[in-house]
Design a protein around this nucleic acid. Structure first.
Lengths: 204, 204
DNA sequence: ACCTGAACACCGTTCAAGT
DNA sequence: ACCTGAACACCGTTCAAGT
């Protein structure tokens, strides 16, 4: 058992985060508990509350890391091909692959409800906003004469859509199996949406 | 306190379902517990396990009712206008309105993870499939020369998309407020997707 | 100063025992 | 036959007490 001052506050935080992530990866976020994390790091449960406010706070920090990893994947594939449609299709492919490769951590980002009184901090919301901002940048070459506000809306509609396919597939609510089918659906949504978005006929 | 044989099995089931639904509506599905339901119907907690297998089973039946109400709303607005695009826009509008009017019960359908060993029965999966089938029917007039399989895929992509906007909006992950904005995004997704879907140019 | 460990107020689920 | 209520194995969170 760990003794006092065996680890600095920073070390304790890092150990706690890593242990909690491992539990989520292996057992899903329903399987996460303060007592399990404490046992995994060799401290008693009270110790967790010295380094995190509560479980919500711990989950928030795990989710932040997950969003950072997703963001890294999405920025790796820069739009060097030059084709805007290809770039957005790539982002979609990356999103689905990320969710499929790490379903439990990805699901915790979007399925965990923070308790009502907890205010999600701005730096966290920024990590979500950043993803939509990338889609916006990808859309810009396709939206020459449109006001920025329309591009923002389009990014939200399109990426909300990609997200929906992703989450329905992972929860077996789409009647399909296999990551390839999910990729097909996503590519179909993106390419058809973009065809509509770039066509010259009016919506009405 | 209720005494033995005060209620038939059927009455008990109905009381339990209704009490549980009220708790979910008021407190969200995180607030649902077997003990709260038991107290609400005036029985002890053990009684719940005489009429439902466990909490998952109870939730499954509440979700079934929610899906039935959603289906009723979606069938009320029959495609009597004759315009296929309008019809699908209407379905989207109904979906968003339903989720917004009854967020806690709607969220439980799509956010509750059933425990791994529990097999979701076919009659339940059918209620999900039915929703996608309606979208398929709506798409058919727009897909004259396409094989059925493509229409099925399109329905999943499009409705997965609508669902994604809906769930991100309800969980405050879209950076928007107000049901009108969500409706705008949904209409934008559907109309652009359909423009792409019905255009004659090839995807590639 | 740092961490413990016991306490409090909850959970889901089971099942012998009571009427 | 029907329901109880106590038990079991868990929870999140707090905080006086120990070293």
């Amino acid at each position: 058992m760990a003794r006092r001052s065996d680890h600095s506050r920073e070390e304790l935080r890092e150990m706690t985060l890593t242990a909690a992530e491992n539990i989520v990866v292996e057992q899903g976020y329903e399987g996460l508990s303060a007592r399990k994390v404490a046992t995994a790091i060799g401290y008693t449960v009270g110790t967790l509350y010295l380094v995190f406010e509560n479980l919500d706070d711990l989950i928030l920090h795990i989710n932040a890391r997950t969003l950072d990893r997703l963001h890294a994947r999405m920025t790796e594939s820069q739009a060097n091909s030059g084709d805007a449609v290809d770039y957005l299709l790539q982002l979609g492919e990356i999103y689905i692959r990320f969710a499929n490769d790490d379903p439990h951590r990805w699901a915790m980002v979007f399925e965990h409800r923070f308790s009502e009184d907890r205010v999600v901090p701005a730096w966290y919301q920024e990590k979500i906003a950043r993803m939509f901002a990338m889609v916006e940048v990808g859309l810009e070459p396709l939206a020459k004469n449109r006001p920025q506000q329309e591009v923002t809306q389009a990014a939200r509609a399109l990426w909300g859509g990609v997200h929906g396919i992703c989450i329905l597939a992972l929860t077996d609510n789409l009647g399909i199996v296999g990551v390839d089918s999910v990729q097909d659906l996503t590519q179909s949504l993106i390419s058809n949406y973009l065809k509509g978005f770039t066509s010259h006929s009016s919506v009405q």
